[in-house]
Write a protein that binds this DNA or RNA. Sequence first.
DNA 1: CCGGAGGGTGAGCAAGCGCTTAGGAACCGC
DNA 2: GCGGTTCCTAAGCGCTTGCTCACCCTCCGG
Lengths: 215, 215
Amino acid sequence: MDSTAETTDGYQAWSEVTPDAARRLLVAAVEAFAERGYHATTTRDIAGRAGMSPAALYIHYKTKEELLHRISRIGHDKALEILETAASAPAAAAERLDAAVRSFVRWHAAHHTTARVVQYELDALAPEHRSEIVALRRRSDAAVRRILSEGVRAGEFDVPDVPGTTLAVLSLCIDVARWFNVDGRRTPDEVGALYADLVLRMVGARPAAGTAPKR
Amino acid sequence: MDSTAETTDGYQAWSEVTPDAARRLLVAAVEAFAERGYHATTTRDIAGRAGMSPAALYIHYKTKEELLHRISRIGHDKALEILETAASAPAAAAERLDAAVRSFVRWHAAHHTTARVVQYELDALAPEHRSEIVALRRRSDAAVRRILSEGVRAGEFDVPDVPGTTLAVLSLCIDVARWFNVDGRRTPDEVGALYADLVLRMVGARPAAGTAPKR
DNA sequence: CCGGAGGGTGAGCAAGCGCTTAGGAACCGC
DNA sequence: GCGGTTCCTAAGCGCTTGCTCACCCTCCGG
């Protein structure tokens, strides 16, 4: 049970999930969904990873989809918090964009198993859960767009197409969850730094002062 | 059967798939896999979309996985051809990078159902098929990296981390398949132009002459 | 010592899955 | 008209799936 020290997601999060057994099941589900995908994962597999019988799952969750919903909700809350915190800091647009991309990417890399479930299993949610999550995602989009348009207005950025560039920036960050750690040569911090630099170039800003661009 | 004029993939491709019924099944499988994912798609669903009985599928394909393999192989061949053609053109690095991103993105947008299967269902392939496909993907990576390193050597680009930037460029393009056409406000050509501009900025090049950056 | 509540299990149900098999319709050269 | 080939179907087999149910452990206040 404690054998897999591998899982980067044995982190302090999920602390809000309260009966201990419920949390173990949820962590097991995150691993299984990330590895094989939601539909390819069986409830027996999840229960087995948590060291329980298949029936135990249904004491804590009504359905397999409820598990996915809980994971997706908590993950989106965390990702959104990261972006909105960076977006509303009292700093220049370039600095805020650097922080947003850096921390957002770092989260996607460090918790790539969770992020993979969060970002790529949206369609498996029940319609009402899906629309709840989609609303959160629109706020992520708004946070990034706000930084970009404020940077343009302040003359810091040169961005011909703000909505399109917003989409591209988020897309670039999100896709980190797909490829990260297949054979990890980079740390989450390194990927965050690289991506922050690339995004600042995309919007026509010089790298933020103080954050050495490592040549 | 001819009811879904929606499918952007009723294009001349798949022409190499020859009994007509086999092609209809394959097109049906692309649609179903793209909509619901490989594991959530049933063989009955595929056969139904193609207007056939469930058993008909097994006349033309040995397993459901063989269908996925054929789709993945043909799609990767096409994507790779696009990249390698652009990479080996007799032109400056900036111009080749522009062409590569533009055409690669355009393909992912125009054929986003196919691209989604190609890019996001890799793990559903049998091990031997997976490694065959992974080899093709390494060649895509090599094609982009070649453009970047040649551009750096020629003094056209300013790229501190060539492998990392290669990864980011490909990642950015590939992720188009995930978000495109959820509510299509942009044409594949427009997305291609936008992304080509963004990537040229990422590598520190001015937009290629002749391709107006649309302000 | 007891009763009940919360957390767990073994066995299994109905439904749906990938895939097979026996057979038949349509077309072919002869 | 006939045998052969090609393409397809109706029926269904064996298995797995998500989920349920009857029952059984502790543990704990009185």
